[in-house]
Structures are given as structure tokens and as C-alpha cells.
Simulated assay, not measured.
Amino acid sequence: MAGCTDPPAPGVNWQRCNFDGLDLSNVNLSGARLRDGSYFRSILDGADLSGSQSFRAKFINTSLVDSNLSGADLEQADMTKSDLSGADLTNSDLRNARLTRATLRGANLTGARTGGTDFFRADLSGATWTDGQRVCSEGSIGRCN
């Protein structure tokens, strides 16, 4: 059962919990169950969400600057208008995720699975693309140029 009142910790079960508008900067949620959770307008700057199960989570208008999302399951997650500047998304599952108008400046997408991902008007300037080789040029909006 989800422990929505449990403190942030590695492996915590926050499935279907609502944490809208909270400051969760620098928390360690590695391996946590965040599936179907809501983090609307929350601050997760510097947070460790590596290996988290964040399927269909709502990170709308959320600040995830310099966060670690490596190996995270973000399939069908909604990250509309989120700030993922400098985020580590290596080997993450972003299939069918919504990154509409998100900021991914300087993010690392090496090995990320992006089939069906919506990058509409997303800022990918300076991001390392999924092949781990190409760095998106300044002004890369909606796709890596």
C-alpha cells in the first residue's frame, strides 16, 4: 500500500500520491514507486529519482533542475512545461511521455528510449541526444538539431 505520509526515502511507495506544490529539493527517491503520482508545480531540483517507477506520473510545471532520472521509468509521464535543465536522463524510459514546452537545456538523454515522446516546443539546446554523441545546437526547439 502507498505510504503517502511516509518521508522521502529510497524505495518509498508514493504510488498515486499527491505532492503538488511541495519543495522536495535534493531528496533521495532512488528506486521509489511514484507511478500515477502528482507533482504539479513542485520543486525537485537536485533530487535523485534514478530507477524510480514513475509511469504516468504528473510532473507538470515542475522544476527538476540537475535532477538524476537515470534509468527511471517515465513512460507516459506528463512533464509539460517542466524545467529539466542539466537533468540526467540516461537510459530512462520516456516512451509516450509528454515533454511539451519543457526545458531540457544541457540534459543528458544518452540511451533514453523516446519512441512516441512529445517534444513539441521543448528546448533541447545543449542537450546530449540519445545516441550519446550528438549535442543539440542552440535553438533546438522540438527536436535536436
Rank of each mutant, 00 (worst) to 15 (best):
Y39A: 06
W129F: 05
L99Y: 04
S52Y: 06
S125T: 10
A102G: 07
C136P: 06
W14H: 00
S52D: 06
V12L: 00
R95V: 08
G111E: 09
R101M: 11
V135S: 12
D78V: 15
N96Q: 15
S63M: 13
S50W: 04
V27N: 02
N68Y: 03
M79P: 09
F119W: 08
Q15D: 11
T103S: 10
D78H: 14
L104S: 01
R105M: 13
R121T: 07
L64W: 00
A9M: 07
R95D: 10
T130W: 12
C144M: 07
C144G: 06
A102K: 09
I60Y: 09
R16N: 11
R101D: 14
A112S: 15
L24I: 10
T100N: 13
K81Q: 15
I60N: 12
F40Q: 12
A32V: 01
A122M: 05
G51M: 02
R95Q: 14
M1K: 14
F19N: 04
L84G: 02
S54I: 00
T128E: 10
F19M: 06
A127C: 01
S92F: 01
S67H: 04
N18H: 09
S30R: 13
N68W: 02
S137V: 12
T130S: 10
S30C: 08
L74M: 12
S54M: 03
G3E: 04
N26W: 13
L64I: 06
A97H: 09
S42T: 08
V12H: 00
D88F: 01
G46Y: 10
I141K: 10
A122E: 03
L74F: 04
E138T: 15
L124G: 01
R35M: 11
A112D: 10
I141P: 03
Q76E: 14
L104W: 03
C4L: 02
I141R: 11
G111T: 08
D36R: 15
G139Y: 07
T114K: 12
G106C: 03
L74C: 08
R143E: 13
D73Y: 08
R56I: 06
A107Q: 02
G139Q: 05
A127H: 00
S85D: 10
N108E: 09
L24R: 07
I141F: 11
N61W: 12
G106M: 00
G46N: 08
A57L: 03
R41K: 14
A107Y: 00
M79T: 09
G3C: 11
C17M: 02
D73S: 13
M79S: 13
L84R: 06
G37A: 15
D118N: 15
W129K: 05
F120H: 12
R33M: 12
T128Y: 05
S82M: 04
R35P: 02
E138N: 14
G139V: 04
V27Q: 13
W129G: 01
S30W: 08
R113Y: 11
R16E: 10
R16L: 09
N13S: 11
N18Q: 10
